[in-house]
Design a protein around this nucleic acid. Structure first.
Lengths: 336, 336
DNA sequence: TTGTACGCGTTATCAT
DNA sequence: ATGATAACGCGTACAA
């Protein structure tokens, strides 16, 4: 049985209140009393019991981060950065993967754990706006575009602009038949829709014709999906001379298909992705991409949550929207 | 204020104990009483308070998984699998990254959270045996080789055998100058030492000479380290015709260096890695590797922990050691 | 400045 | 089968 406040109090010859004061850094404690208590704490190896503390205060010091999947390098990176940012506020982070299943996402938001976490940073995938309306108990920060208008802050990059930048880059290279890989039909696939919009806008701007034959649909955003989509594009009779993939994983898959068929990248087909994951810096060829400022995203998410959780803070203030910069990173897959 | 047992009890016209019985599936409850309570629970949207439950029972239903880094695909995959396995026991998983810093690893094992977690699955990197001796409070399962002899179970693959298999495969290809990338000097780098031992053993077995000039040391196990090491190997005058990299990330980095210098893989240099991460299945060329049975590792880790946590279980029984199979996966980087 | 006593929501031990 | 009540360890009015 680990020592409690009571044990420390007994050993130091003071009351529990005094020990509590010392532990919580209360100011008005006589120096020698404080020293005696400190000594007792050290001697006993006292550690506050979080359960009891939470039961009293309602705060657990734990926030949750929910991402579609940890296997995806982008989300793994983001989760890691959020953990680092939260650590600076001495919060513990509970990382959850939803596998993009609405069921799991809903469970997470409404379920057992809502008692145990103070806040939630959530990167929704399957979950549409209405599902989130129910939840009003704990502060939440959404990652990604604003797809609903409930009382949650969110931080996002401009997906449409990023996609347009990528596509424009391909246009500037003189490519005339620029395909897109990553289209998704589901109405909840907001990211895919926005990147498609940006792609189309840039195409129109360059006077290039769009068309269903150069817009490849995928089931997921993984390498295998990109590889399969690229194969379809190549087999379709009139192959593209450039491809904008909606994320780097798709692009790496596409790259694989191109190279295994003996095509040159970027010679025959230029390829650009989105996310700037580490893999792209060491693939052959290295992968051009649109790089969101992930560090800033993580910091902002934690900061927004902190403001909602802060003592006199506007816990119920209006939802805020923060936009984070992105930049185009040109590497071998388009520069050559 | 969310409803508690008391509220449900009042609404159902029963005592808190009865509600508690219903919630916990106690058998001796009259059917109609149970129904009335259930109705009240639904109506009020009652959810048990975990903090209170833990305060009573001493159990939080949370286990922690500590890995060196989530950015590493292998660990991300493993963590994901453990989460899935834990879910089947309705445990919540707290994922921690230690960044391989002994300081953080120690803090984790001894720190604040020890009250809040029931068990720990730990993949130590920097932490040597003695540091772990202190900890005796919560059950722990170690991932990786047994490097100490405290009271903790551990599950591991046979690193030495795996490394030997990989090296032997290169020998069978007829390669005569087989280099290794991934040597680490630190005494705590047990994985590196074991893979080196397996490599050397296979070399000896094939009658091939070892040597410091074909054993490349690295600071970490990332792509960049592999790329740099490969460059050194190539610049050393007598380049190898095959390389065994101690993990896939190193191999992908090495691949990058080889290809960017116009060398053919496996034509000029064959490359094999270790871990079987997804990236290797889509690189160009695809990467041969040694595949640990990660699913089984995850399941076993959770299972061992469950046994320690089980009611009448031997919470203090002798430490157990479980070995998990691995298999050689031959892909393009060595077949051709 | 420090001590006493109560309550947070549960589970467990008795009774009934 | 169900109810009353005492802990679990901590924070906090309120009292001293």
């Amino acid at each position: 049985m680990p020592p409690g406040l009571k044990d420390v109090a007994a050993r130091a010859g003071v009351s529990v209140k005094t020990v509590s004061n010392v532990v919580n850094g209360y100011v008005h404690v006589a120096p020698d009393t404080r020293a005696r208590v400190q000594a007792a704490i050290e001697a006993l190896g006292y550690v506050p019991n979080l359960a009891a503390r939470q039961l009293r205060s309602g705060r657990s010091g734990v926030i949750a981060v929910a991402v579609p999947e940890l296997q995806s390098p982008y989300f793994a990176e983001l989760a890691g950065l959020i953990v680092q940012a939260a650590e600076r506020r001495s919060w513990t982070v509970l990382i959850d993967q939803t596998d993009g299943q609405a069921e799991r996402e809903r469970h997470l938001v409404a379920g057992l754990r809502r008692h145990a976490i103070d806040g939630l940073i959530f990167s929704p995938l399957a979950l549409a706006g209405e599902d989130l309306e129910h939840r009003t108990d704990i502060p939440m920060v959404l990652l990604g575009e604003r797809v609903w208008h409930g009382p949650a802050d969110h931080v996002a990059i401009d997906n449409t602009a990023g996609a347009a930048d990528a596509t424009r880059h391909l246009c500037d290279l003189g490519r005339r038949r620029i395909a897109a890989i990553g289209v998704q039909d589901a109405p909840s696939a907001v990211t895919a829709h926005q990147r498609l919009a940006g792609y189309r806008a840039a195409l129109a701007e360059a006077g290039l014709p769009p068309g269903p034959d150069i817009e490849a649909t995928v089931a997921g955003f993984h390498r295998a999906d990109g590889a399969a989509a690229m194969a379809r594009l190549l087999d379709s009779g009139d192959p593209p001379d450039a491809v904008f993939c909606f994320n780097d994983l798709l692009a790496l898959g596409a790259l694989r298909t191109l190279l295994s068929r003996g095509l040159a990248v970027p010679g025959d087909v230029a390829v650009i992705g989105f996310d700037d994951i580490e893999d792209g810096r060491f693939s052959t060829p290295t992968l051009s991409t649109v790089a969101p400022d992930a560090v800033r995203i993580a910091n902002l998410a934690v900061e927004l949550l902190a403001e909602r959780l802060g003592a006199g803070a506007p816990a119920a203030g209006p939802a805020r929207e923060v936009r984070v910069q992105h930049r185009l990173v040109v590497r071998e897959s388009t520069a050559g």
